[in-house]
Computed example of a mutant assay.
Amino acid sequence: MLRETLIAWAECGFQLVRTAERLAVHRDTLLHRLTKIDVLSGRGVREARTAMAMYLACLADAPQATD
């Protein structure tokens, strides 16, 4: 759930409303998830540089689909 949140956060341009809509969750739920990511990682996911690094890490670590 948190990986999906990070990916959506970056792909929606770090915009709360767009990200919440994409994830089909309430804006407060998204804020709660982002805060949880902040606490677990010790980093501020609302800072663009940190968020982008986490996004790229999620993509790099994601299982690849095989044809």
Results as ranks from 00 to 15, higher is better:
residue 24 A to E: 15
residue 43 R to P: 04
residue 43 R to E: 14
residue 44 G to F: 09
residue 42 G to I: 06
residue 30 L to G: 00
residue 47 E to H: 09
residue 37 I to A: 10
residue 27 R to N: 01
residue 39 V to C: 05
residue 32 H to F: 14
residue 27 R to K: 04
residue 29 T to Y: 11
residue 32 H to G: 09
residue 44 G to K: 14
residue 28 D to G: 06
residue 33 R to H: 14
residue 28 D to S: 11
residue 25 V to K: 02
residue 42 G to A: 09
residue 31 L to V: 12
residue 24 A to N: 14
residue 38 D to F: 11
residue 40 L to V: 15
residue 38 D to S: 15
residue 45 V to A: 06
residue 35 T to N: 12
residue 50 T to R: 01
residue 31 L to Q: 15
residue 43 R to L: 15
residue 42 G to L: 08
residue 47 E to T: 09
residue 23 L to C: 02
residue 42 G to W: 08
residue 42 G to P: 09
residue 45 V to G: 01
residue 49 R to W: 03
residue 42 G to F: 08
residue 27 R to A: 00
residue 48 A to R: 09
residue 44 G to Y: 10
residue 32 H to W: 13
residue 32 H to L: 13
residue 43 R to G: 05
residue 27 R to F: 00
residue 27 R to S: 00
residue 42 G to V: 08
residue 37 I to H: 02
residue 45 V to I: 15
residue 43 R to D: 08
residue 24 A to L: 11
residue 34 L to H: 07
residue 30 L to C: 04
residue 34 L to R: 06
residue 43 R to V: 10
residue 35 T to G: 10
residue 39 V to A: 09
residue 51 A to V: 00
residue 40 L to I: 15
residue 41 S to G: 15
residue 25 V to Y: 00
residue 28 D to W: 08
residue 41 S to T: 15
residue 24 A to K: 13
residue 22 R to M: 03
residue 36 K to D: 09
residue 44 G to H: 13
residue 35 T to K: 13
residue 24 A to P: 06
residue 37 I to R: 01
residue 30 L to V: 04
residue 32 H to R: 15
residue 37 I to Q: 01
residue 47 E to W: 05
residue 46 R to T: 05
residue 44 G to L: 13
residue 35 T to V: 10
residue 29 T to W: 08
residue 42 G to Y: 07
residue 50 T to Y: 00
residue 23 L to D: 02
residue 51 A to C: 01
residue 22 R to D: 01
residue 25 V to N: 00
residue 29 T to N: 10
residue 29 T to D: 06
residue 41 S to Y: 12
residue 48 A to F: 06
residue 34 L to D: 05
residue 43 R to Y: 07
residue 43 R to N: 07
residue 34 L to C: 09
residue 49 R to I: 02
residue 40 L to D: 14
residue 47 E to C: 10
residue 26 H to T: 05
residue 40 L to E: 15
residue 37 I to L: 12
residue 23 L to N: 01
residue 38 D to W: 11
residue 22 R to E: 03
residue 46 R to F: 05
residue 52 M to V: 13
residue 26 H to E: 06
residue 46 R to L: 05
residue 23 L to F: 04
residue 35 T to Y: 09
residue 38 D to Y: 12
residue 36 K to A: 10
residue 45 V to S: 02
residue 28 D to I: 09
residue 50 T to K: 00
residue 35 T to S: 12
residue 23 L to A: 01
residue 24 A to R: 14
residue 36 K to Q: 12
